[in-house]
Design a binder for these strands. Structure first.
Lengths: 251, 251
DNA sequence: TTGGAAAGTGTAAAATTGACACAAAGATAT
DNA sequence: ATATCTTTGTGTCAATTTTACACTTTCCAA
């Protein structure tokens, strides 16, 4: 084990890791990208885990989170928020398996603090199957997750909570949708995150009133029902609003 | 330097520290408890810093934050929230001075991640002057702080932001006031934290409507004007409310 | 007794919320 | 071509909440 009182280097810091809760939305429900640790987890707790890794001594936390995200999905400049730090002394030991930890180059017996992030990814931009890296990554609907490795279930819950808070006060949902989307999709997204039904008409009225959406002249194609108008998030309008101290995106 | 791949012990973890933003309210404005590093900081950046320390390998983060708080103020079971983790590789080196770092037993050249917490303390419960420990701790009005040691100014800003968010959705302000307080004091508190004026009558109506305050039959004494009725935060009423899924403490 | 200072109180207009139902558009199957 | 299916898209009214605003009361001190 390198001691890290020396020069900055490409050494992994054995005490600090980053875990990412990568949210997606399949147009029906909220999902999370999970790693299947496979047989290596050999009976020691759940196979599924959040993607994460130790940080390098020369990168800051945000960089590390972006790196983890990039290494796994190839995606850069994705919406990313810190959830917080998690660090029971025995968080790893509880349900650990040393082979797995060694495989991600963690010291199995070291005490590790993890800093959790959540990110919002348009699911269309990352299909695990197509990726050469990390073939064992899968989108899993949040509602189907009952347990995860280590303390990752707890982290997921915290991330959901933060996301819920955040979307109540900032219009970040668009990061989970394709550039062009319908109001119904946005509606379902809000319902998934807030975990409660929202009246359709009231939702539309409210979201349109905020005036950060541009309605395109384009319609959905190929749907077996009345096609919906498509909308885009309008960054400029949003910037104007925030600069005038606007604050009420409340849901 | 101990390597921490060994057994759990009372060793300090050289890579992880906890810093506390301890908020108080002097009935006029929001204040923070800061440590004057004094001459030891010998020209290397600001003298004032947030109280903090490295964590022990056998304590979790919340415990560490409580410990820092307790060691400094003698206060226990205080309202405490995590702000988040901060960890530029050079966060200490930027403006550090090694003597100071050594004095708090940090490795001057180690890369340190800090996990920041904020806490709400009734100022009356802690007078730095009266304390035997840490005579160099002072309450400083938040509005007067322009710089702090290390990355502590940044941390303070983040903590203010979190507190602002939080008080909009949960009635935690009482933690900064004496048990018995007046509505005007509460009013000023909200104005300080939200950093904007609130209409007096509207504020009173709203806060009373929520129905988590008990009005005492007691009045202020010795004030050179009409004395105010005193109120208490009513924990039971609050619990009832939250259990019924009440959610709208919005300011 | 008077003056100073903050406490305490009500109302009306405007904005927002919440509840609610049916016609229109396109795709598919017959 | 027609009928059927599915989802889109729309308006109103009542209730509630928000905002703006000014004067009287109470106690202390001079």
């Amino acid at each position: 084990m390198p001691n890290n009182t020396n020069n900055f280097s490409l050494e992994l810091n054995p005490n600090v890791s980053v875990d990412c809760v990568i949210f997606g939305f399949d147009l029906e429900q909220l999902t999370v990208l999970l790693i299947d640790r496979g047989e290596i987890s050999s009976g020691f707790g759940p196979r599924l885990a959040l993607p994460g890794n130790l940080i390098y001594d020369n990168e800051n936390l945000d960089m590390a989170a972006n790196r983890v995200l990039d290494e796994l999905t190839g995606l850069k400049s994705i919406y990313l928020e810190q959830v917080g730090a998690f660090g029971d002394p025995d968080r790893i030991h509880k349900q650990s398996d040393q082979a797995w930890l060694k495989s991600i180059r963690a010291e199995p017996e070291a005490r590790v603090i993890t800093v959790a992030y959540y990110s919002l990814v348009p699911m269309s931009k990352y299909k695990p199957q197509a990726s050469s890296f990390a073939k064992n990554a899968y989108w899993v609907p949040v509602s189907q997750i009952n347990e995860l490795a280590f303390d990752h279930y707890e982290i997921l819950q915290a991330a959901k909570g933060k996301l819920k808070q955040k979307i109540k006060i900032q219009p970040i949902g668009f990061n989970l949708l394709p550039t062009k989307f319908t109001l119904s999709q946005l509606h379902r997204l809000y319902e998934s995150i807030l975990d409660k039904p929202l009246d359709k008409r009231n939702f539309r009225r409210k979201i349109l009133k905020i005036n950060i959406l541009s309605s395109l002249r384009e319609k959905q194609r190929g749907v077996p029902h009345k096609p919906s108008l498509l909308y885009e998030f309008n960054e400029e309008k949003y910037q104007e609003l925030t600069q005038t101290g606007f604050d009420n995106f409340g849901f």
